[in-house]
Write a protein that binds this DNA or RNA. Structure first.
Lengths: 344, 344
DNA sequence: TTGTAGGCGTTATCAG
DNA sequence: CTGATAACGCCTACAA
């Protein structure tokens, strides 16, 4: 292995000088710098990351822990995170728990053993489980999308309630009255917020707010399928559905197909989270696109600034989402009268 | 920071003893072990990863470098990799280059500086660019899906040629004669193999093998869209298309929609790589599913075995893919005569 | 079965 | 501007 000493030897300088040219900080005479650079190139030297992390007290790796790496939402978050992190010399790595809390717990040891200098996480478990309590916090962390119970670290996410309200309002304006929601797990902060937005809209338009209209879907395609089956079994059947996220929607689509329900004639559908394929589904799915890239950037920004000593890098950040209208939403079949305008 | 010395102090033993109980190797009296364990629990001690990597000479991190983290193919590969790696105490991290060779190059420093103990990579660039030449190899690596030019490291992939042949044969058997292919970049080994399989099938059934029928799509939705537009402009227009991968297919779908071409009546489509949403597209897309989870497992197996000194962990591994028939393929419109049976 | 001590490669301090 | 040198936290001979 070629180390800093070999470089020093070959360039006929001390290791301190080699280090100065590598880090680009201290003063080095042009001539010596040249010799060092030459030696580095000739020997193809790369500083050892472990040794560096040990002396510096931290690595240069930022982690992104997500529940589902296949969700394109996180792919964009990752890209934003990487772009911003690179500006300050940090690298990013992603790990997925695949919705398995035990696996997520395992991943947390990378957080606790110093492998990571900072962590952006969309948590499954609680802060206590994950070792994210204030005292135990080894490295700075920020939450993406939802916060772990019991933590005070910053959250970067989107305007869940307002956007859910907007999406459901658009359904109401098209004349729907009986609107179901396929929700995510109740303990997800985002689920609570999206349910609140859904209810806001219903109330505003005087539509029924029945607990039975909110179905809980365990995150995953299967959960979405089961929830949609339950919706289709309801009497009277809702004419529209608002879905918690893209994964549940894929499952919901399976149920719709299996039952031979025609969209949007018999059922309208709006979902949180967009996917490029949604535009090509039959019918194209109306969806809410989150600013995922910017969420990633904002998270990295918070992390990097904290790592560089900026104590102010601490507040929550909420970025706006937008509704993309497509073919899966239309007025209900027996052309209902348009809904009354909202009061006020 | 609480280190091994604090534990030793509190448990009233030496650091060597602490180390023995942590690693679980050397002999330690039950009573002392108990004291050490208690101290570790009380102080919430986690060994520092950097220090450990430094003394042991390598980290316990395996990397997966992919061109596109949003592709569900890699999500499954990652899962397989993690499962197998965990069996031997290695963690996995993923990084994406987003099809940017410069970014990929950047990532390679994690490989060269020892951050990673092993690397599974689906390369964009050549072995020389990436620093994967035999001499320079700091860390064992395996290729996923395709090999970088100029490397001899093992490749874990699928039977590209045979499966492409099978997919195109199924088209020919339905009566198609003029079949286009939307290919990936020519310098991708996988593209060459899939083109070969496509040509195998055409020749076998005596269908036209014209260079103009193979369109090159720069990887990405846009490339797929442009390639499909070129296909649709051809005179006479092909009645079927074989697409290199899921990403290109999404773009191709956009072109089909934009032109108002009806599938499968006017055009049949088969693609390499499956996605769960393909089942809900209009029409559902016939696709080739790779054994992605197993590819990930096999890659990790190779890496882990090499890291543990098994010199035999070295050959290429080819896992079979399977064709999933869906609605995007059907006999050509003016019901052509069935193709002649293959000779022999 | 236990402890001491030296070293892993880099960084940073502190004289010169 | 330059060069010794002492950490960083853990691991592992080797000695007891």
């Amino acid at each position: 292995m070629v180390g800093i000493r070999q470089i020093a030897e070959r360039a006929e300088v001390s290791t301190a000088t080699v280090n100065r040219v590598i880090r680009g900080n201290g003063p080095v005479s042009p001539e010596r710098r040249k010799r060092v650079l030459a030696a580095i190139a000739e020997l193809d030297y790369v500083p050892n990351a472990a040794a560096r992390a040990l002396t510096r007290g931290r690595s240069n790796l930022l982690g992104l822990f997500v529940p589902d790496i296949a969700n394109p939402f996180y792919a964009q978050v990752a890209k934003g995170l990487e772009d911003r992190a690179a500006e300050d010399g940090f690298r990013c790595v992603i790990s997925s728990s695949d919705f398995d809390p035990a696996r997520e717990l395992e991943l947390m040891t990378m957080y606790r053993d110093g492998t990571l200098a900072g962590l952006a996480i969309s948590p499954l478990g609680s802060a206590a489980d994950l070792g994210l309590q204030k005292q135990g916090a080894r490295v700075p962390h920020v939450f993406i999308d939802r916060r772990a119970d019991g933590s005070a670290a910053p959250l970067v996410g989107t305007s869940n309630r307002a956007t859910a309200r907007e999406a459901v309002s658009s359904l109401l304006e098209q004349g729907h009255r009986r609107i179901a929601m396929i929700s995510g797990p109740r303990n997800f902060e985002t689920a609570a917020q999206r349910i609140a937005g859904y209810q806001d809209a219903l109330r505003r338009y005087g539509a029924p707010v029945e607990p039975g209209l909110v179905l809980q879907g365990y995150i995953g395609e299967r959960g979405g399928r089961e929830a949609m089956e339950a919706v289709l079994d309801q009497e009277p059947r809702p004419t529209a559905v608002f879905s918690f996220n893209n994964l549940l929607t894929i499952g919901a689509l399976a149920a719709v197909r299996a039952r031979g329900v025609r969209m949007p004639d018999e059922l309208s559908l709006v979902t949180f989270d967009d996917m490029s394929l949604f535009a090509y589904v039959d019918p194209p799915i109306t969806a809410i696109a989150q600013p995922s890239y910017d969420i990633g950037r904002a998270a990295a920004d918070l992390l990097v600034r904290r790592l560089e000593g900026d104590e102010r890098a601490t507040g929550d950040i909420t970025l706006p989402a937008r509704l993309i209208g497509r073919g899966s939403t239309a007025p209900p079949a027996p052309a209902g009268r348009p809904a009354p305008a909202p009061p006020g």
